[in-house]
Design a protein around this nucleic acid. Structure first.
Lengths: 252, 252
DNA sequence: CGAAAAGTTGATCTACATCAACGTGCGTGG
DNA sequence: CCACGCACGTTGATGTAGATCAACTTTTCG
């Protein structure tokens, strides 16, 4: 009886197919689960990392705060995403991580990650891939914050979420659940709450999206991509090349 | 006769002290040098990575372009910095890299990087550290773009450059060379050229900085850090912990 | 020396912020 | 089971940081 594949495994296998022992190693990592309620801090800026974590269900954010209370949400954490991977290297975190919804997650020692790197080079390659993607996502966010208008930014963010959720089967037919207040949207897009609201309305009124409660439907992905100048290259959704896998796996 | 230590070696040794063989490996990587004139593209968005590169002298930028010509400079590359490290994983680049000044650099195959990871775990640890720092820098830039005013952003950027240049001995007494046009500053900070100019003036007029040609002097670092809400934690300038080095070096 | 690149400054415009008020759903405690 | 409170969403009026437009000056460099 095959257990339901976890979001993390889905995410990994979208990039590099796994063998049984590799899948088992991940399952082992994920076995110990913790439930956490909405709006709980998992990592605190300026404090020690509690370890490395994997999100199984629910949404979280990674954000940075200024001393006067302003905050920038740097990225969303969706099911299958990891956080605190830098715990491997740095003792203190320069950012915070907090749940938005009730969530289920696993936390473990950075030593386990190091072990994984040694024993399972293919998994190491996948994690390197995810780190690189994370950086690319943040760079794209910076680009939006610096160059795009509010309208463009909002459209871009929705498309990014769609693509990322599709990988873990949480979006279908251009529809997904968006369990996020407008304040969160505002802090992600560098807008005031009021303007985030008006921007959403404009998107609705222009017929590009439809919202019902927490459910959003991107009615015209093509047109959205057009206004946002969205190109999913930065999400690196293709499979890893054999050569790249080799580089991680083989001795010279 | 000891050769002058390269910026890269300086940067690495600020994080983890090296042994002779490790230093030799880096020297080998860096031996083959190329001179490139100002405003040359080294990596092009949407195209193949030419390989992995190390900048020895001169400045460069990493930037992303929108299809209508807007561009966001995502990071500066200073002597000792690497670019195209993702060539290891991805075939196409989602960003461009271009020199700002005449520059000297080495480019080599991603296979060499993989070899380094295998043979010299301490160097692998250092490069992982730099990747993590790069991500942290971009996250901090996103935070500035989303939350800080023009004045704050400019002050913040100058402090970041100061700290980074100090590591490779290119800044002393809060003075350094800033070989950058105001257009570049504008595209970094998400401002119009005109406003970048006025913001610079305001910094000068408030006595926080002094400029003479390409040379800049941060007269009051304390006050600058105060207006910018600058905290250098994100630059991770301390040494790597023994435990972290171990994680990379040791078998379980 | 001439032309182009870079810097500077004033006038005006606008995207978005701020302030203020009100509506609506919903969880909780009496 | 109701009502009260609070989080969240919505909308109008007004303010402002920064964009845009348009000159002009200074520096750089072939």
């Amino acid at each position: 009886m095959p257990t339901k594949t976890s979001p993390l495994i889905k995410k990994i296998e979208a990039v590099v197919p796994l063998q049984t022992d590799e899948r088992d190693f991940i399952a082992e990592l994920e076995r110990d689960r913790r439930t956490v309620s909405a709006r709980t801090d998992l990592v605190k800026q300026g404090e020690k990392y509690p370890g490395v974590g994997i999100l199984h269900s629910g949404w979280a954010i990674r954000y940075k705060s200024l001393s006067d209370g302003r905050r920038q949400i740097v990225n969303f954490l969706l099911p299958g995403d990891a956080f605190g991977l830098f715990a491997n290297l740095f003792e203190l975190s320069d950012h915070s991580v907090a749940t938005l919804t009730d969530a289920s997650l696993s936390v473990f020692s950075p030593d386990l990650v190091a072990e994984m790197y040694r024993k399972h080079p293919k998994l190491a390659a996948a994690f390197a891939w995810f780190s690189a993607r994370e950086e690319a996502i943040i760079a794209e966010r910076a680009t939006g914050l610096g160059q795009r208008t509010a309208f463009e930014r909002m459209a871009h963010m929705l498309l990014e979420l769609l693509k990322r959720l599709e990988v873990v089967s949480l979006a279908n037919d251009n529809k997904f659940e968006l369990p996020v207040t407008q304040e969160i949207l505002a802090d992600t897009l560098g807008l005031s709450l009021v303007h985030a609201n008006r921007t959403m309305r404009k998107l609705r009124e222009s017929g590009l999206i439809e919202i019902e409660g927490q459910n959003i439907f991107l009615r015209d992905v093509r047109a959205l991509a057009d206004v946002a100048d969205f190109d999913d290259l930065y999400l690196y959704l293709q499979r890893m090349s054999k050569q790249a896998v080799k580089r991680f796996s083989e001795a010279v």
